[in-house]
């Protein structure tokens, strides 16, 4: 545990190559992530970062705040708005209890992800 109530912040900006590479690792090669032409024909206009790649960044932030989470913990997130290639994705983790952390992630457009993580007692 960090020992303070200070937030833990992790920021990432993803390029198209990151989405392509993560697609190969995770199976998330869907056209909405890896095909800018397909994405341009949707309401989003640009490829969306895979939700699981965003979650990986969230998980890393949770582990920086509470390393023991990786061995036994829960995390639950809602994806509120899309994150596209080139967006700066900023995750903030704030302790809200002995074993609970709140999660909020933003881009320049506002809140894109919210959630909570808990370390098993």
């Amino acid at each position: 545990m960090s020992g303070t109530d200070e937030p833990t912040v992790v920021t990432r900006t993803f390029a198209q190559q990151d989405l392509d590479d993560f697609g190969f690792v995770s199976g998330g090669t869907g056209l909405i992530h890896t095909d800018p032409g397909f994405a341009a024909r949707t309401e989003f206009g640009r490829p969306l970062v895979q939700g699981l790649l965003l979650l990986a960044v969230v998980e890393e932030a949770v582990c920086r705040a509470r390393p023991e989470w990786a061995g036994a913990g829960d995390v639950e997130v809602r994806y509120r708005a899309p994150v596209t290639v080139g967006d700066a994705f900023r995750v903030e983790i704030l302790p809200t209890g002995a074993d609970e952390l709140t999660i909020e992630a933003t881009t320049a457009d506002g809140v894109v992800l919210t959630g909570v993580a808990r370390v098993a007692a």
Binding site: G30, G51, E59, G71, A72, G73, D74, E76, R78, Y79
Partner: peptide
């Protein structure tokens, strides 16, 4: 194709 992920919960029980 075009599916959006809107939520995810992970419950870790063991490393």
């Amino acid at each position: 194709q075009g599916t959006l992920q809107v939520g995810q919960r992970i419950r870790v029980r063991r490393a």
